[in-house]
Design a protein around this nucleic acid. Structure first.
Lengths: 259, 259
DNA sequence: GAGTGGTCTAGACCACACA
DNA sequence: GTGTGGTCTAGACCACTCT
């Protein structure tokens, strides 16, 4: 508590395997987290820092860049670098690969193909995929489960332009982007998703083995190519009693988001 | 289609107001999106690029850094820089400030304080906030609405160490992190949230004006200070018929996530 | 050993903010 | 004007990969 009252210069180990810019960023991070630099307050200028620690200005900039990426400081041209306010009210819910997540929890993920066929686009699908009515599309119905119980019921459609046969091996990665890559002409480069809270329909209760009106997450996904044309569309229904999304926002350099 | 077979060098405008590193990054982005550089393929080495375009290697590195941040390429020490595979299966659902979102949609957000009082921590709350039983805590009940209808019902608790009076002005920003900052000793620096799909309880149907068993999103939030001690806990119940989360993942330099 | 990306330097010029 | 951050250069040394 009584140390450092003389704004003593923290030491940088220039021979360390740890980069100088990282050591410097950590020094400022510590000062910010300890409240010795408070939100709105200015950091020393880049020239001051580079003289004080006897390092190049470019190295100072790299350190500040790390802090900027972490959202801890922001820069203003011609004015200076300032400590940011924590933005803990922002939320980011991440959803990662189903198989990995299940395996991480010590269970065995399974993918069951309930059906796959070529269908002609009806009005809804034609609109979702921006194709003419009755265009040939591939339709997949999948059930993702652990060894114990079903978890996700998926319906996916992709534009079917290559007329390639449907391979068993597709089930190794039945993600919409993989299916679209295999059977479409173009590369998917953008994915839009919408997450709804809903209750299970009759069909979903049967497939998922839950009661009518049980809560579920519904994730609708649309894939686009580089020209912004839809190349795939799908709907995943996740059991509400087995799924939750977690979000960690941390005001520090490590762990931008976790789990 | 027939152009550029002579690997003609794209021009960089060195006198432009647009930074060279950005122009260069855009050139590679275009080549990748057009499929002239495919996933797994190597970019020219940094030295080659710097000679080819007659710019410094540090500028080349800055350009590649932009592409790396966008997830379009990855680097391997001693080997080279390679085009990444699009990871469109990752999902990021963002939830932004309630008031801004409502206003953006052309409605007027309202916050109604249903109640605020000092309570003694029961078993559940003592566990959530990691304090002894019966510790004094502040308890807020809030209703967020448009002019037309209620949307979110919130219950929030913060550790009450400062013994500061409760101010009307807190309602300008009744976020958990603001309440915790005002009434706690320490700075919140980390926020964890859990998103559940559920159905409305009896109390929630009354407050939100919906039917029993209507789907709702439940967002549970815990705030921590720099020492990882909980300083606030809250639960927000959002009408399922009025809320959806959207996610856009784009394999390009702009729009890392949108809306 | 040759080639690669990672780090770092000691300069330079610029546009911007502020007095 | 002075001071700030933003860009850029032309070198340098390192650890790493591959042959």
């Amino acid at each position: 508590m009584i140390k450092n009252y003389n704004q003593e210069v923290k030491k940088l180990d220039k021979d360390s395997v740890i980069p100088i810019y990282y050591q410097l960023a950590k020094i400022f991070e510590k000062q910010i987290l300890q409240g010795r630099l408070t939100p709105g307050e200015a950091l020393p200028s880049e020239n001051e820092i580079s003289e004080k620690y006897d390092i190049s200005r470019m190295t100072v900039r790299r350190a500040i860049s790390e802090l900027t990426n972490a959202g801890m400081v922001y820069t203003q041209k011609g004015k200076g670098t300032f400590v940011a306010k924590p933005k803990l009210e922002d939320v980011i819910f991440e959803l990662k690969n189903f198989h990995e997540e299940i395996r991480k929890r010590g269970m065995q993920p399974r993918t069951k193909l309930l059906g796959v066929k070529i269908v002609r686009a009806d009005k809804l699908l034609a609109k979702k995929l921006n194709v003419p009515l009755n265009t040939n599309c591939l339709y997949y119905r999948l059930l993702l489960s652990t060894q114990e119980e079903p978890l996700v019921y998926e319906n996916k459609y992709v534009v079917y332009t290559k007329q390639k046969p449907i391979l068993e091996s597709e089930l190794n990665d039945p993600s919409l982007s993989n299916l679209a890559t295999l059977h479409g002409e173009k590369f998917p480069t953008m994915s839009k998703r919408i997450l709804h809270a809903s209750v299970a329909t009759e069909e979903e209760t049967v497939v998922l083995g839950i009661e009518l009106n049980e809560p579920v997450f519904v994730v609708e996904q649309t894939l686009y190519d580089a020209d912004k044309n839809p190349v795939g569309w799908g709907k995943s229904v996740c059991r509400g009693d087995r799924f939750k999304f977690t979000s960690t926002i941390s005001w520090s350099m490590d762990n931008t988001t976790g789990d």
